[in-house]
Amino acid sequence: MEIPYTVDPRPDTGLFNAKMGIWLFLASEVMLFGALFTTYILLRVGATEWPHHELDIPLATLNTAVLISSSITMVMAWASLMMKKFNRYKLYMGLTFLAGVAFLVIKGFEYGHHFATGELPEKTTFLAIYFTMTGLHGLHVIGGMIVNGYFWGPGSKMWKTEPERFTNRIEVAGLYWHFVDLVWIFLFPVLYLL
């Protein structure tokens, strides 16, 4: 059976199905991360002491820039397909994937440093929520990279047979990726700067 409304908008929603689907998924993600932000607030308000500027701010600032850069390359990948420039798409999607790798490598350095100095989740309330939030976010980055890597590689064959459907797939993957960027935009000040 053919999957309905992959390209044409469904009459009642005015959207192709995957776009409605990803937004509903992102709505559930807002609640998932929202619960953790609420947890953070309660833990912090109830804590007797809270670290200030003890994490590596230059490294995290660099990582923020990396993730923001990956967001613009992602949207450029989609825009390239809209302009029917497949080679440009490959370039931008490849860069998006590499930025994901860079983000994880930098985060890995940070984690490595924490582990080496004994800053483990069990040590303080702050470290517990820090590892929970950045760990969950990191898993989201890995998930996005798997999808982006597939669409850069084997999944990109669809461009030859169903270009419009493929372009929609990239838009949906992009919406997820930008959301992951958006979560980090809040995690960065909350965990590193305040």
Binding site: V75, G174, L175, D181
Partner: peptide, 9 residues
């Protein structure tokens, strides 16, 4: 966040 949601998304 609004810039990301408004333009990129």
């Amino acid at each position: 966040g609004s810039l990301v949601a408004t333009y990129f998304m």
